[in-house]
């Protein structure tokens, strides 16, 4: 793709360029979602993108797995405090069954959120952080850049950590699927708007 060349020449535009997208046919994406950046944004099957959520691929490719829910006013692929390094091979990767709650921010730069994670309301995931499977980042918690969070970690109460030993992954995934069913009926989807 020519996107790499363009990135170096073009000045940063406030609104951002219209991002090249790659959607599965079964996704639900609201009309007012903001998809910007010059790298590809991939959204896999059954995922839900709420209104006014912002997916920003200017720092690298953004990939959203299956059955993810990205809530309102989130910013996936936000520029980190440091200028984006060109060495990052991708921006943000959300694996399957990830929920990004309202107003959460995920910085760009090889940031990986593994399967079944919950990013709580207003939480911030630093650039290059790697969350293991089924982590829970509670509201307003911060994961610092480059941090590796082991599987099943719960980050709560100003950064205290513990392991989630409930063993309810199947239950959680089923609940997520049910929620997506409901959301699909509530949110009018308009994927065509984002395609060229």
């Amino acid at each position: 793709m020519a996107s790499n060349k363009r990135q170096s020449i073009l000045p940063r535009v406030q609104a951002g360029p219209k991002a090249p997208v790659n959607f599965s046919s079964s996704i639900t994406i609201a009309d007012t979602a903001i998809l910007t950046g010059n790298h590809t944004i991939n959204i896999s099957s059954d995922s839900v993108i709420h209104p006014r959520s912002k997916l920003d691929s200017s720092g690298g490719r953004v990939t959203i797995g299956r059955r993810c829910i990205v809530h309102e006013r989130t910013h996936v692929g936000a520029p980190g405090p440091a200028p984006p390094s060109s060495s990052a091979s991708f921006g943000v990767l959300l694996e399957d069954y990830v929920t990004v709650e309202v107003a959460a921010v995920i910085e760009s730069g090889e940031t990986t959120i593994a399967e079944g994670c919950l990013i709580g309301i207003g939480a911030r995931i630093g650039k290059g952080a790697q969350l293991g499977k089924h982590c829970t980042i509670t509201a307003k918690s911060v994961v610092s850049p480059g941090e590796r969070v082991p599987d099943y970690t719960v980050v709560y109460s100003n950064g205290v950590r513990r392991l989630d030993k409930r063993g309810v992954n199947d239950l959680k995934n089923k609940a997520q699927a049910r929620q997506i069913e409901v959301l699909r009926r509530l949110i009018p989807s308009n994927p065509a708007k984002f395609k060229d």
Partner: peptide, 24 residues
């Protein structure tokens, strides 16, 4: 999905929705 969910079978546990502690 949103039918009146039939009572789920036991066993039951006490769970914290914040830190995900469970009595199990």
């Amino acid at each position: 999905a949103d039918n009146a969910a039939p009572p789920a079978p036991g066993p039951w546990a006490l769970c914290c929705s914040y830190c995900n502690w469970s009595s199990s």
